[in-house]
């Protein structure tokens, strides 16, 4: 399945005017931000709220964005990280996933039964991700949720790429242990 989360259009070069720029930002990063957020929240509704809030912050702050100082996607994902953190602080609800809450999952399953199986698998995976520590969740969400490569994840986290690789490898190891424990 082709990865369509980040589009190659450049919102910085979009024509002037808030509406058109809002469209450009969303067009370029909307799905990536949403998918990243979705790795951290239990429902599509929550992901909608956090994504909308992220883009409102992007619009409010875009005049301060300086392309000379870093890539737009790194800037946006830092805003998304902070928005997600605020959301968790406000809600203080334990994150979990449940079956039937996967209406926003992209699936190329040819049959309804295969789609259900895929939804169930992703539910179990995300439930296990939710049981990881915050650092593990963060690196997994950025790498797999947003679809960014490890070099860009390193820029968002402000660490070296080798550190991201190590952190990711360890997080995957711990996730595997959790999944094994969960297997009947």
């Amino acid at each position: 399945m082709p990865d369509s989360r980040i589009h190659s259009s450049s919102p910085e070069a979009a024509p002037a005017g808030r509406q058109s720029r809002a469209h450009a930002w969303y067009e370029a990063y909307g799905q990536a931000v949403y998918s990243y957020v979705r790795f951290h929240v239990a429902s599509a509704d929550e992901a909608d709220d956090v994504t909308a809030e992220t883009f409102l912050k992007v619009l409010a702050a875009e005049e301060r964005f300086d392309p000379q100082r870093g890539e737009a996607r790194v800037w946006i994902f830092r805003i998304a990280q902070n928005t997600l953190r605020d959301h968790h602080r406000r809600s203080r609800v334990r994150r979990h996933t449940s079956l039937g809450a996967m209406r926003d999952l992209v699936a190329d399953a040819p049959t309804a039964e295969e789609r259900l199986l895929w939804e169930e698998e992703v539910s179990r995976l995300l439930a296990a991700v939710a049981d990881l520590g915050e650092r593990d969740r963060e690196v997994i969400g950025l790498r797999y949720g947003s679809g960014m490569d490890t070099a860009t994840v390193a820029q968002v986290l402000g660490v070296r790429e080798s550190a991201v690789r190590t952190r990711l490898w360890r997080a995957l190891g711990r996730l595997r242990v959790l999944l094994e424990e969960d297997t009947p």
Binding site: Q19, H23, Q31, Y34, R38, R89, D104, Y144
Partner: peptide
Amino acid sequence: LGRIQFRPRASLEGEVAGRWARGDRPTPG
């Protein structure tokens, strides 16, 4: 994990643009 992708509902973009146009601003953390 690399196969997992989520897609927001199609109306979300319009909702963000609409909220912005109505003067809705991000809530402070």
